[in-house]
Computed example of a mutant assay.
Amino acid sequence: MNADSLPHPSPQGMTIYHWRHGLLLLAPTLVLERTTTPLCATLRLACNKPYTINVAGEEIETWASLVAPRVERRKVIAIDSHVALFYFPIEWPEYRDLQARISGRDWLNFEADQFTEVIDVLRPAFSEQLEPDTVIRVARQAVEAMTGARIPAPQPVDARIDALRRRLDETPLNEVNVEQLARDVGLSAARTRTLFKQQIGTTIQHYARWAAIWKAIKGWSTDRTLTEVAIDAGFYDLAHADHTFIEMFGIAPSLVVDQRFVTIVPCQTRPDTDPGLSS
């Protein structure tokens, strides 16, 4: 079986749960045969039978593997594996132990029994939708299973940085102006950049790209065209949105928004919520 013979990389359908700090994709079968180097760390966990992955030039059969950001993935063949694919932006503070765990390595292999509790939660999810709180909880369990440590409690964020973060959530990507945003919250641009990176865990521009992706994902679940939604989110055009999405996740957005095969579930209940694994 190869990607060319399938109507979609997940012909039996997939469900994608997303929140600001990560993404979970569930698919009974998943076949990806294109080279990607996503910016997220990715955990693939089989709930039924092992899958094959080619990573950094090495092909392995496994129940669970964590691949570091920017490491080349050439192929994933997970036929009837009932695979859970977690995307973790490990620069965020809540993932610091996971970042240390994968540091200096391209990938890590795990035994399935290390994720027994996680798999028990996920197995029913291939036939019924999970609640958002359950998704956040199982993502937390997956991280803690890999690190052997509790995810640290969230640290207080400077009110000015929190205000800036919320502005970024609402500002189209092409309208983000760090100097103006800094003035709006009463800081210099240099101080704003430093505090934001220290407290949020990523740069302002990188956060803005994430925020634009979330806005686009929400829009793509409607009847609007991909181009309309991409431009509203602040991308220059559809190609810009495609490039950013593939860079983040290694998957073309046209596959994600194909409603014949894909169900998208946001894991926040109110616009002002900020779900994270440490919250």
Rank of each mutant, 00 (worst) to 15 (best):
M1F: 10
P7G: 08
P11C: 00
Q12T: 05
G13Q: 01
I16Q: 08
H18T: 07
G22S: 03
L23Y: 01
L24G: 03
L24N: 03
L25F: 11
A27I: 06
A27H: 00
E33W: 11
T37R: 10
P38W: 04
P38Q: 10
A41V: 01
A46T: 02
I53S: 04
V55L: 06
A56E: 05
E59S: 15
T62Q: 13
A64E: 00
A68Y: 06
A68C: 13
V71Y: 09
R73A: 10
R74Y: 08
I77C: 12
D80W: 04
V83N: 04
L85I: 02
F86Y: 12
P93L: 11
I102K: 03
D106F: 08
N109C: 13
N109G: 11
E111C: 11
D113A: 07
Q114Y: 14
Q114G: 12
T116I: 14
I119N: 06
D120M: 07
D120E: 15
L122F: 08
R123K: 13
P124V: 02
E131S: 12
E131G: 11
R137M: 12
Q141W: 14
E144H: 06
A145N: 11
M146T: 04
M146G: 00
G148H: 01
I151Y: 03
P156D: 13
P156L: 11
V157N: 04
A159Y: 10
L164I: 12
L164W: 02
L164H: 00
R165H: 12
R166K: 14
T171G: 08
P172F: 09
R183N: 13
R183Q: 13
D184P: 05
D184V: 08
V185R: 05
L187R: 04
T192P: 07
F196W: 00
K197G: 07
G201D: 09
T203K: 08
R209G: 01
R209T: 13
A212V: 01
A212S: 12
I213R: 06
A216E: 03
A216P: 06
G219V: 02
T222G: 11
D223V: 12
L226P: 12
T227H: 13
T227S: 15
A230L: 00
A230Q: 04
I231A: 00
Y236L: 14
A241V: 06
H243S: 15
I246A: 10
I246C: 09
E247I: 03
M248S: 14
A252P: 04
A252R: 09
A252Q: 05
D258F: 09
D258R: 04
I264L: 15
V265Y: 05
R270S: 14
P271W: 05
D274G: 05
L277V: 07
S278Q: 09
S278K: 03
